[in-house]
């Protein structure tokens, strides 16, 4: 047992980091692999659909992530418009799938947080947010498509929207005075209270920023993880494929889970932020 432990410690503590370091070194040194990685994850004008097929050059001021945003919107709009027109009483697979997403948002996100009465008014917004994020996240896992949510501008825009809504809804529903009164903790001295209120005020911005960063980093890092495993094949040797392809496949499957989870988390957190800011304490 003790012997086994030492071997494990040596392998995990020395050999694996050493290997990883040597394997990772060419990744940093070689400009080629690095740019290959970045072209898969970052925004750009060229859309490479498949290896050996020359990449499509998009027109100026039109980028791949923008294209993905349009595709996302079009997909959701087409699916939901087509199926909301011909709904039936006894639904089939597609209708159940499309409905259950909205039902999920309603029953697991909006109603528990906001309550039924306010939730009914807000349901379209949050279901739009959820569907938008979910589709944008999942579309990146399909080959030839990219994740638009892996771009800080997209997630930042959504987070800024949530931030603005927090203020607007808070001011509208409970008034400017009560909104700031909520930030002030009761039962403390004036100096400490003002300081805490200032921190609370800042935390509204931080929360939104973290909202953006979290989604962006999750999407970006997930795709980078898959690609890094695959890039090892180029860097090390073709035989590395036996190791890295199963790992990449595993990461890919994990990414499916994370995509759904992050869409849920973003929606849930924005729901909590907005509804917290607009409630009397």
């Amino acid at each position: 047992m003790g012997r086994c432990k030492t071997v494990l410690k040596n392998v995990l503590g020395k050999i694996v980091p050493l290997c990883l370091f040597f394997f990772a070194q060419p990744l940093f040194a070689e400009d080629n692999v690095s740019s290959a990685l970045s072209s898969h994850v970052l925004n750009g004008h060229g859309w490479d659909i498949f290896p050996y097929i020359p990449e499509i050059n998009l027109p100026e001021h039109f980028t791949v992530h923008l294209l993905m945003l349009f595709i996302t919107t079009a997909l959701i709009a087409i699916f939901y418009l087509a199926f909301s027109k011909k709904q039936v009483l006894k639904p089939k697979k597609t209708q159940i799938a499309l409905e259950s997403l909205i039902l999920f948002v309603r029953d697991d996100i909006v109603y528990p947080v906001m309550g039924e009465e306010r939730g009914r008014k807000w349901l379209p917004f949050y279901s739009t947010l959820f569907l938008f994020l979910l589709t944008a996240n999942l579309i990146g896992l399909i080959p030839a498509f990219k994740t638009a949510t892996g771009n800080i501008n997209v997630t930042g825009a959504l987070a800024i929207m949530v931030l603005i809504l927090t203020f607007v809804v808070g001011f509208k529903e409970i008034g400017v005075k009560d909104f700031f009164k909520n930030l002030y903790p009761s039962g403390t001295g004036l100096g400490i209270g003002l300081f805490v209120a200032f921190l609370e005020f800042l935390s509204i911005f931080t929360k939104s920023m973290v909202l953006a960063i979290r989604l962006f980093a999750n999407m970006f890092a997930g795709h980078m993880a898959i690609l890094s495993f695959l890039v090892l094949i180029i860097i090390v040797s073709p035989f590395m494929g036996f190791v890295s392809v199963p790992f990449a496949a595993f990461t890919y499957l994990l990414e499916v889970l994370i995509d759904v989870l992050q869409a849920l988390v973003f929606t849930l957190l924005s729901c909590i932020f907005i509804s917290n800011a607009s409630e009397h304490e």
Partner: peptide, 12 residues
């Protein structure tokens, strides 16, 4: 891209 995000989200 940020502005387009708002626009597409608004349309959706």
């Amino acid at each position: 891209l940020a502005i387009w995000t708002w626009i597409t989200f608004g349309i959706l």
